[in-house]
Design a protein around this nucleic acid. Structure first.
Lengths: 190, 190, 190, 190
DNA sequence: CATGAATGAGCCTTCATTCAT
DNA sequence: AATGAATGAAGGCTCATTCAT
């Protein structure tokens, strides 16, 4: 990592902290600069705008999370277990890199373009993973109700359920028992 | 409805439109005023602040939704069906009154107090309903995995799943088949 | 007093109270209206502007004070005593009608015209009284240092000393001993 | 003086001019900015608020005046003369730095806290000086009427007389003869 | 490279005043 | 005679962004 990247990293780390504390809108460039120990104008030397910092930051974190989740389910055979582990891993990792928070939470109407772009990447990647798992489950006849033609939509639904859980429950809350219940519920039903 | 309430309503309707378009932060009083065909200062004749408009608006919508949802599940016996109908009704109604959107979406870090207050009402009411359904289901032995002591946490989890679905999927998306899948998934599992 | 005058009086009384509490600038028409138990727009039926209320009010009070002060010194012979009594009476009365306060205090730069007009009346009247006393004192040879040609200027100076005392000391402060010292000092010197 | 202080000084000088023309309330940040040849927002780079500018400004001026007044009376022996010179110096200096004007004039009801703090400093310092002079005069038996136990109150009274003269007379008016009369009057009486 | 300094655009809010009823 | 309703104008303040050094 050259010098330039190093400074960018310092700034992003700082931004990560304040963004996850105040959200995109309420966080000011001053906040970030102060947290990074840099001057406000310095930020503009490395990033074009506040949004660009946020975007950069989010993409990095998303990639890391997806990478880890993929790794985690690699050695598992049962589709149901794959799904359980995927969700669990995702939760854990998001809690660590808690800053995509506002992104996932879709904080920003009025910044549509910004968010949509970032988000789409995550959604597409995640959908692919889940779809793969579901396909596998169908093939192995592991799922009761799921029909062939619903596959893609079901993937979508699960994805959104996961997203919702991420947002509302586990990020703010440290109750591992709830995580278990949630995962079991998604996979096994009531 | 007297004159005062009528104008308040005009303003709230206008606010509803722009809030749901831009969110709380990005929406300016000017936006609302313009949309309502009133002067900016007129808004202050009827509401004390931008936040008050938002709060007013949100509470109204929440009450309507909860009212309809309660009515919808009244005549239903099976707990599983109750839950299905509750979710379905909630989705439909939220789609209609789409403006609590940002509220549910929890747009606002940094306005904690405002949101928290409104939101808590909804959460409490919703939790009560779901808890009731779950209790019933347990009593009638309709649920496979759910244990007595998990009741409250399970209610919580379901609530958050629903919340997540509301946010990410159905609001932006008009696919009734997905709704079915989602509901079935929550109730029956994969 | 006809009906019109009666309402005007109610408004002025109310204004008196709030003006003396907050001063001209910080007092709003809403404040006055609320204190008067009238609607804000009603004030405009009786007065052209906030300033007009203030002006009206002040002139009334000034006249009363001057009237009482003149009456008080009427029966006194010694010029020095006349002056002492004049000052004492003025103080007492201002304390009672404490609202010209801001006027005397000249609160309002930026409303020059308003204030200057009212104030001039008071200044002229007061100067006349003091000048008369001084002239008398000179005639009776009661004053040590005062020369003929300084008369008018001396009157002016005394007037301003009185004004200063009114403002800074006695209005905020209830120390009759200080009043005595002050009066003695002005008349007799250190 | 570094750059920062230089700009602050430019702003304060500008503020001094407009404040003394319009007073604290009626002067807007726009006024100051325009007078300083800066953008309105620039003012906020150097000062946190309008009040802070005012406070800064006032304290500076007060310190200068007190410093000069103290210097002026240092070499003088007679208490009466000391007092005369103190008053004369104060007047002259205030005329030069004419901006504490509104401060002394106590323009602001409703901004109590701001003013009170600044003002208190001046009052305390001034009282100390006068008290010292009076004590000296008493010791040397230079005063006719003043009694021991009245010392503090007398200092207070004189202080307020001076304050009044400052406000009402000499600031608006350029009559050095009047100054003489006033000083003589305070010290020697009529 | 880094930043101190500067600013334009805008935001929320207040308030004296107007006017139709 | 009285006022509810409406508003224009302004004010204090914030902040992302620019730029010369």
């Amino acid at each position: 990592m050259n010098k330039d990247e190093a400074v960018k990293s310092v700034i992003k780390d700082a931004a990560k902290r304040v963004f996850s504390k105040w959200g995109l809108n309420k966080t000011t460039m001053e906040d970030i600069a102060h947290e990074a120990g840099k001057a406000k104008s310095t930020l503009y030397y490395y990033f074009k705008s506040k949004e660009e910092i946020f975007e950069n930051l989010s993409i990095d974190e998303l990639n890391i999370i997806l990478f880890k989740a993929k790794a985690a389910i690699k050695g598992i055979n049962s589709p149901k277990d794959k799904l359980k582990v995927y969700i669990a891993t995702t939760f854990t990792e998001i809690k660590k890199t808690a800053n995509i928070y506002s992104l996932i939470k879709g904080e920003i109407k009025g910044n549509k373009t910004l968010i949509d772009n970032i988000r789409k990447r995550f959604d597409i990647s995640e959908e692919a993973i889940i779809l793969e798992i579901l396909t596998l489950g169908l093939k192995y006849n592991e799922f009761n109700f799921l029909k062939d033609i619903e596959l893609k939509k079901a993937a979508n639904v699960i994805m959104e359920i996961i997203r919702g859980l991420e947002i509302n429950l586990f990020l703010e809350n440290e109750d591992s028992e709830k995580v278990d219940i949630a995962i079991r519920l998604v996979v096994e039903g009531l």
